[in-house]
């Protein structure tokens, strides 16, 4: 168990040298005053795969998006590899380079070829030469099985292929942690597997991953921990075995009965 309880005094928290994401008492309200995150605390350690589950509207996307500053938060503290994401988001770009993100809708850049989608960040943000960036990109595209499509445009690829490119694009920045927000929810069933296979390989390679997904097979097999959110609160943080086979909370049982068939 690496989940740490909410602290009243953040300054006294001993830092786990292996921790990559530390969230402490994170509160977020939307502009309309909707209280979406109600004091979330959790730690993700190097090499861990954490799966976030919870009913629709429970705040999973919001939470995962606070980890790279796409959602600002008002109270509490989030640290990525020892660097705090300040509430005013100063210097957030540097943190984002360390945190890869994969979206439900892929969000590839339609005007760039697959290859250029992957090299854009490394060329402009890491100062790689075009040749080096392309060599690295081709290696990544090879890994996700899209190398033959390198010179096509996103619009020419299937959803599953696009999502694998999106993973390669994020990996090209050599992030310390990868965030996935329902990466297979927008895919036709026959394409879900090819994306999950890539994610599984990525997990085996030791990448730290936080995934919002309702893919039970993936979660059982790959996740080190399952975190369950409901109504903006962290309900449980446990092993897949315990979560799926021995859930204690009524809310989890109810949720599982919904997603398991």
């Amino acid at each position: 168990m690496t989940y740490s309880q909410p602290e009243t005094n953040a300054a006294t928290v001993a830092r786990d040298p292996e921790a990559i994401i530390i969230a402490k008492g994170v509160h977020k309200r939307y502009d309309n005053d909707f209280h979406v995150l109600k004091g979330i605390s959790l730690t993700v350690n190097k090499g861990e795969v954490v799966v976030l589950m919870g009913p629709s509207g429970s705040g999973k996307s919001t939470l995962i998006r606070t980890f790279n500053g796409l959602e600002p938060y008002q109270e509490g503290k989030i640290e990525i590899d020892g660097t705090e994401i300040s509430h005013n988001q100063k210097g957030i770009e540097l943190i984002r380079r360390e945190v890869g993100m994969v979206f439900q809708q892929f969000n590839l850049f339609p005007h760039l070829t697959i290859l250029k989608n992957v090299t854009l960040g490394p060329i402009h943000l890491k100062g790689l030469s075009q040749d080096d960036a392309e060599a690295q990109a081709m290696e990544l595209l090879e890994r996700v099985g899209i190398a033959p499509q390198a010179n096509k445009y996103p619009g020419q690829l299937s959803g599953g292929q696009q999502q694998r490119v999106a993973i390669a694009r994020a990996l090209a920045m050599e992030p310390k942690v990868m965030l996935f927000d329902e990466p297979t929810s927008a895919l036709d069933p026959e394409m879900v597997r090819e994306v999950l296979d890539v994610m599984r390989k990525l997990a085996q390679s030791g990448m730290t991953m936080v995934c919002v997904t309702h893919e039970v097979g993936f979660a059982r097999e790959v996740a080190d921990r399952i975190i369950f959110l409901a109504e903006g609160e962290l309900v449980t943080d446990t092993t897949p075995d315990k979560f799926f086979n021995n859930p204690e909370e009524e809310r989890i049982k109810q949720f599982l009965s919904q997603i398991l068939h």
């Binding site: 945190v99 979206f103 920045m173």
Partner: peptide, 12 residues
């Protein structure tokens, strides 16, 4: 989503 993807990579 396009804009967020760009921000998430680390572009200003």
């Amino acid at each position: 989503g396009q804009i967020e993807a760009g921000l998430a990579i680390g572009f200003k």
